[in-house]
């Protein structure tokens, strides 16, 4: 069995990313789409940490710092999305992205 290295983590991250893309494309429920987005964000975050660990030339922690901000922003994004969703639900009783579609003519 080969030693665990950068590529292992990158492949895991690619799997997470693909799963996230799949969720985003197939789900219609806004909350489920949001879950897919979280997967994508985590894939990117995992990349940053892995690159930081295995391939950056110096001892800086740039990748990890980036990941911290990703986590914070993900929280803020979820809050915003859910707030708007709640308001929409109060008006329409739906969280289906396709059903919330009164505008097209």
């Amino acid at each position: 069995m080969p030693e665990i290295g950068l590529n292992h983590f990158l492949i895991v991250s690619a799997l997470l990313f693909s799963a996230g893309i799949g969720v985003v494309i197939s789900r219609k429920n806004a909350i489920a789409v949001l879950c897919g987005v979280e997967l994508i964000l985590n894939a990117a975050a995992l990349n940053f940490v892995a690159f930081n660990r295995y391939s950056t030339p110096d001892a800086r922690l740039d990748g990890q710092i980036f990941t911290i901000f990703i986590i914070i922003l993900a929280a803020a994004e979820a809050a915003v999305a859910l707030a708007i969703l709640l308001n929409l639900f109060q008006q329409t009783n739906t969280v289906d992205v396709d059903e919330a579609d009164t505008m097209k003519e």
Partner: peptide, 8 residues
């Protein structure tokens, strides 16, 4: 309602 839809 269109504002919320646009927002989401």
């Amino acid at each position: 309602r269109r504002g919320s839809e646009g927002g989401i």
